[in-house]
Amino acid sequence: MDQLSQTLGKMGGVFLLPLAVALAAFVLIGAPSSWLTLTVAGLSMGMMIFLMASGLSLVFGLMDVLNFGHSAFVSLGAFIAASTLAALSGWLGSPSVLLNIAALLVALMAATAVGLVAGLFFERVIIKPVYSDHLRQILITVGALIVAEQLILAIWGGTPTTVLRPEFLEGSWIVGGSSIQVYRVFAFGLGALVYLALYLALNRTRIGLLIRAGVENREMVESLGFRIDRLFIGVFMLGSALAALGGAMWAGYETLITPALGGEMLVIVFIVVIIGGLGSINGTLLGAILVGLTSNYVGFLAPKVALASNMILMILILLWRPSGLSPAVK
């Protein structure tokens, strides 16, 4: 048994779980074309959730802040991207793919930039006064989420907002009898790029080293001569910007959004952070992919339990590993 455990550990350990889930689903679903469609959908959904959750995980791990307002950045990013794309509808409708891509990039960059600024405001005004007080953090960030949702409602209205998509991301590819949506492949690719950038930043730079050390022991980082409070601001802004980017991508995926979008994603984002383990980007990616795959497979195999599938997954994983699959602090 120990030998099997060691061999699995060398092959990737808990990071083999998505593969195991996909293989089990392949057997249960039976039809390879349906399985492929669901797997691509699950992976792209997972990557978008990863974008939303990665910042929360770092903020949670490094700053020990329970930010229930995190999903406000998801909503904000979604609506900023929707408005930007609407304003650039001329570019989107153009036959030029370059203009299509430019419109998409501007929308994503606008959402990210607004997320950065909103994150700075949120950290300075709302979070800073309640550091190291979890109860107040919960109360004030839930309150901030409600205020943010109402602000979005006041600005964009309660009618669902349609999100325009660039022409080149519309449609599907047919692969081996399976229909693969182009947007999903794009979402997966963008998520993978962001993960790679975060991974390199955390593992190959001095700031990344400080963040990883800070997640483990803030006091010791300060005792070595570094101002971790300044790092907090940067990480919070980064987390907010990533959430906004995730929201923008999710808006394009859903194509119809309401101000409640962030609130709806909040539970799933927290589940991913808890499953993955606090403060770990690798863990968050793993949790997000597992949630994405499980949601799609269960939705196909047993639609009646689809809503509960994420909760069941979280319970099972926490019973097995109470600190999550790959926490930053072991």
Partner: peptide, 24 residues
């Protein structure tokens, strides 16, 4: 003074729990 400023003035600290970053 802030802890980091005290450290930068030339004081190092080896805490009782050693303060080693296990994940690094």
């Amino acid at each position: 003074l802030h802890t980091s400023d005290i450290a930068r003035r030339g004081i190092a600290y080896v805490p009782e729990n050693m303060g080693v970053f296990g994940g690094l």
